[in-house]
Design a protein around this nucleic acid. Structure first.
Lengths: 197, 197
DNA sequence: TCGGAATTCGAACCGACATTCGGATAAGAT
DNA sequence: ATCTTATCCGAATGTCGGTTCGAATTCCGA
């Protein structure tokens, strides 16, 4: 890492972090398209209009970039899901709203999701990825809680696992100009679970 | 490829192909655990009790090995699915049997599935993978057909996409000593689709 | 306008890894 | 027993790509 960023100059600090965020987004795009290992740091730099060295001004390593993608995906999702659950309310509506939120997040972060899924084996093991695994577990617990509060209590593991499969898979087929809106998709999934057809 | 195998000595030919198949299975295991790119040919050879060079007696390249994994996954699945559909019969039962078959295949080939999913970006593009994409499409058409023949006709795209998500995702969580048998899982998925809870 | 930090450059380093190759060993055929 | 083919060995090769580094260049604050 050539030069640690800005120590306590808040204006610069903020610009730096905004740039970082944008670079993470671009990296997610490239990784999703070509694969993490297939994408060289020079590819990345080129697609960002930078020289290779400049990348290391923002990220200490390629792996750190991958971790940043995970964070950018999971942190806001967890935050808004927690907020929604804390608000309380009717069980079925809460489940519906959670799935809507979730699907919207997934389609807005398709690239992140695809990278996450492709690099499953990296995240599944290793000390370094403990936090990522914990975040996923935490979110799954929230979904389980919402399912348990639904009208016919959806308790056994299968509904949860089915829902995880459906929603995660959405990243693989959703297209912005497709026939279904994220909301319609979410409501369709919930209808399946609740048995309303 | 050091020496093309056996030209027309059927006994040897068969032994060769059996070994090949076994090596593909082992490779799938390694790739699923460590990732395709992270697994070196020397890792593979070691885990098979071979020297690196010997691998090239059976496969022309690492990429060819990956293609072999795809084939070993898709060919028997397509074959048995086609057989089942050709047999005809009641719509709901046919859907149920297809999903049972499918889930059983997925859990019996978890490693293949995980590799397939991890290397999505490879398969999604490139002339070389046209056949793999076609096989997947063909299978999806079969599932769509079965859905269309079910009791409440499950036509719009969502049920198909939901089912694909659920079943594919099964590879990520299924454990042989888990609480649910492949058959129970399959029936659970079908129950969701058919609205029987 | 000036000084120093922030940002960027891009060539060079260096380890890793797919693939090759020439030869050794084993196994089947005659 | 001998010849031939299959199978396997494992060191060497050549490329590729993540990372480093010292030097430009740009930007901000004063």
């Amino acid at each position: 890492m050539p030069a640690p960023p800005s120590p306590a100059r808040p204006a610069l600090r903020e610009r730096y972090e905004r740039r970082q965020d944008e670079l993470v987004r671009l990296a997610a795009r490239e990784f999703a398209r070509r694969g993490y290992d297939q994408t060289t740091m020079q590819d990345l730099a080129a697609s960002m209009g930078l020289a290779t060295g400049a990348l290391y001004h923002y990220f200490g390593s390629k792996e750190e970039l991958l971790a940043a993608i995970c964070d950018q995906l999971m942190e806001p999702l967890l935050a808004s899901a927690r907020e929604l659950m804390a608000a309380g309310g009717d069980g079925d509506r809460r489940l519906r709203d959670l799935v809507r939120l979730w699907v919207a997040h997934v389609v807005a972060h398709r690239d992140h999701m695809l990278v996450f899924q492709q690099e499953r084996h990296v995240i599944e093991s290793g000390e370094r990825w403990r936090a990522a695994r914990a975040a996923r577990k935490a979110f799954e617990r929230i979904v389980a809680e919402a399912l348990d509060g639904a009208h016919p209590r959806l308790q056994p593991p299968l509904p949860l696992l089915a829902l995880l499969g459906m929603v995660n898979h959405t990243a693989q087929w959703y297209r912005p100009r497709g026939a279904l809106s994220p909301e319609q998709i979410a409501d369709g999934y919930v209808a399946l679970l609740l048995g309303a057809r």
